[in-house]
Write a protein that binds this DNA or RNA. Sequence first.
DNA 1: TTAAATTTGTTCGTATGTATA
DNA 2: CTATACATACGAACAAATTTA
Lengths: 239, 239
Amino acid sequence: MESTELIPKYYKIQELLLGKIRTGEWKVGDEIPSEQDLCSTYNVSRGTLRRAIDALVRQGLLTRIQGKSTFVAKPKIPIFSNGFRADIRSSGQFANSRILYYDKRPCPDDITALLSLDNAPMIYELSRVIEAEHEPIILEHVYIPDNYGEKLTVDDLIQTSLLDLIPQACGILLKKAIESYEPTLLTQEEAHRLNAKAGQVAILDQAITFDINNIPVFLSKALIRGDRARVATEITFTI
Amino acid sequence: MESTELIPKYYKIQELLLGKIRTGEWKVGDEIPSEQDLCSTYNVSRGTLRRAIDALVRQGLLTRIQGKSTFVAKPKIPIFSNGFRADIRSSGQFANSRILYYDKRPCPDDITALLSLDNAPMIYELSRVIEAEHEPIILEHVYIPDNYGEKLTVDDLIQTSLLDLIPQACGILLKKAIESYEPTLLTQEEAHRLNAKAGQVAILDQAITFDINNIPVFLSKALIRGDRARVATEITFTI
DNA sequence: TTAAATTTGTTCGTATGTATA
DNA sequence: CTATACATACGAACAAATTTA
């Protein structure tokens, strides 16, 4: 009966709902109609409607609360990285950094390879959640080989940036970092740590920092919530 | 009959499938079992199974081909940005840049505001797809006010980086760029341009470039496929 | 305080369409 | 043309969280 539709229904509805947000018909904080209502409005099944809403939730444009309703989400928090993204983790804008743990453990295989370590080494792993505007935004794991890691204390880590702390505590100079980032989706565990929903978009930022002899010193994996934050940088051209 | 499960089935299956990829039981390029087979293996409905696979496809770990099968995807292509992410778009690694259009049109409201332009101006819009390793990776839209835009030709744009071309053609000096990036999902249209699937993760990179008087010169919005690419940067510390 | 109604979250079964072999 | 595999869509049921009566 239906004509050959090139564009699926769930996508059309997604665009319609996006339009209501973009035009301001639905404003930030507004409660949108219930799924039942939207189903009858657009004449689709609940599964199809939810598929449309799912995509907007993953992008951080809508927020669902079970038993309550669905709301238009607040705008994203800009995270300024001062040109050095390796320093995101310690700049002044992040008043609160909560350390989940800092302890010695066997080094995972992929980290061993990335840091050019010997077989089956021990490593210190730092796990922390960094907040901005009173929301948990970044989940970071830092891997520090034990010869350096044993010289750091939790108190130091709370107070000082790693880029300042390591040269000072370990007596080495840091030269450069190789950083890469890619978009991903939060797992159940990561979402839980960040007080977010599983399946949300995020940026996975990985940085390896090297000393003046180009020897890897430590590795950081930072997961930045994409529904609540965007990363901003200023670049000055050297001509 | 089922005990109160805290973790939904679709998520457990997602983890199981991820494990098969991570451990190498399923290798790059491998065809994985059909949805029917996986349904009976894990004893779930097709909807639940597809929900698990959907997440892995969005992250670029699996690729589905309708009528054929589902495959383990190739590793991501690293995109090196030489410390200047604003120059990603023109560095030597991108042999092929295909211009979709370059023409004058009314300036969208959000761009007008970001470039601090007067009311209802005209603007040149450049749309192009940039390839790496023979795959379309970046979809870029550049907005150039008409006083500068009219001095550029499509031939110039094909051959020269905007950061080199604009100073030379327009007689101005560029000083800095303010750049921000966030994760997002591809729309139907964007996916089509990039020969990808709608709903895939991507990075939306927006940069505004300023002249020496801190006046905005042009704006670029680059959409980088997250399933096939990750962005890499090297940072040198100035002590 | 309790119970019922509402709203979102998960899962199933089924049907039909589209692309490929 | 047919069988297979992925894609979309519907309807129903129950669970879990919240609000309302």
